[in-house]
């Protein structure tokens, strides 16, 4: 019944899908997994014939797996914190974008566009160098280690994207909803929180999950600014194993695999939700 309006940016274009005109290949989970695994094994096996004293690439990965995985868990932790922080601030920014006061809207627009169009890596540098390493509050010194600065750095683009998702979802709700809530004497705040936002939730969920996936994959950028997350550890492991060049492909392949295993299910779920919500709405 609703006019078909989608978020312009993060959802794939809404389409009337009767029958696809051409045969469509349905991806199953194992397809991607298999390709990723082949990459690792093949790149490992291709150079497995090192010296007898040297561990094979597979052996190296097995040996250092606990360390590498602990690095990966750190990546996930950073992504979750950045997502939480960015979502809270982004929600506020998104609500400001539909404010009735013109200056508030303008400020929200400018902040959103600025942080949305800046590269994540530049924003990360931005946070690294410009956030103080400690923060004094009422005589208490709160230290800001690098990883917290990284969380702040990642939350900036999250904030801007969440703001855009929220604004888009609110705008996609038909005007009639606002009008009828108004006619029933709901205040603007009541209308927003009880009528508009609950309807937005399902529209916001898929792009929001997609964004989370992007944040997770972006956390490796922290290695560039010296936070010891998985990618940093990977190059340290490589150095510890004598810096053999043939180890690089398997080691980075393993990092690819870890992220793939984590992000692929999120991607699948996002698509399922997207599809379901499109059909139902």
């Amino acid at each position: 019944m609703n006019p078909a309006k989608t978020l312009p940016v993060l959802l794939s274009p809404r389409v009337e899908r009767l029958h696809p005109p051409f045969p469509v290949f349905r991806l199953r989970a194992w397809h991607g997994l298999a390709v990723a695994a082949i990459v690792v094994v093949a790149s490992g096996a291709a150079v497995a014939q090192g010296g007898p004293t040297q561990l094979s690439p597979i052996g190296v990965i097995m040996k250092w797996m606990p360390l590498l995985l602990s690095g990966f868990v750190f990546n996930i932790a950073i992504s979750l914190m950045a997502m939480t922080l960015g979502t809270v601030v982004g929600l506020a920014l998104g609500l400001m974008a539909v404010s009735e006061t013109m200056p508030v809207r303008k400020v929200s627009w400018a902040v959103t566009q600025f942080f949305r169009n800046s590269p994540w890596l530049v924003l990360l540098f931005f946070a690294m160098f410009l956030v103080p390493y400690e923060f004094r509050l009422l005589g208490v010194t709160v230290p800001f280690p690098d990883w917290i600065k990284a969380v702040i750095g990642f939350s900036l683009p999250v904030m801007a994207n969440v703001s855009e998702i929220v604004r888009g979802a609110i705008r996609s709700i038909p005007d009639g909803q606002w009008e009828s809530a108004e006619a029933l004497a709901f205040s603007r705040r009541q209308t927003m929180w009880m009528i508009i936002l609950p309807q937005c939730l399902r529209r916001m969920l898929p792009p929001w999950m997609n964004l989370y996936s992007l944040v997770t994959m972006a956390t490796v950028l922290a290695s560039v600014v010296g936070v010891s997350e998985m990618l940093t550890l990977t190059s340290q492991v490589h150095a510890a194993e004598g810096g053999r060049p043939e180890l690089l492909a398997p080691l980075y392949g393993f990092a690819l695999l870890c992220f793939f295993v984590y992000c692929y299910p999120i991607d699948r779920l996002t698509r399922r939700l997207e599809h379901r919500f499109q059909v139902r709405l």
């Binding site: 009639g176 006619a183 309807q199």
Partner: peptide, 12 residues
């Protein structure tokens, strides 16, 4: 009270 052409019920 007011009733609209497009009903405008709250779908959720």
């Amino acid at each position: 009270g007011m009733v609209f052409q497009q009903y405008n019920l709250f779908p959720h």
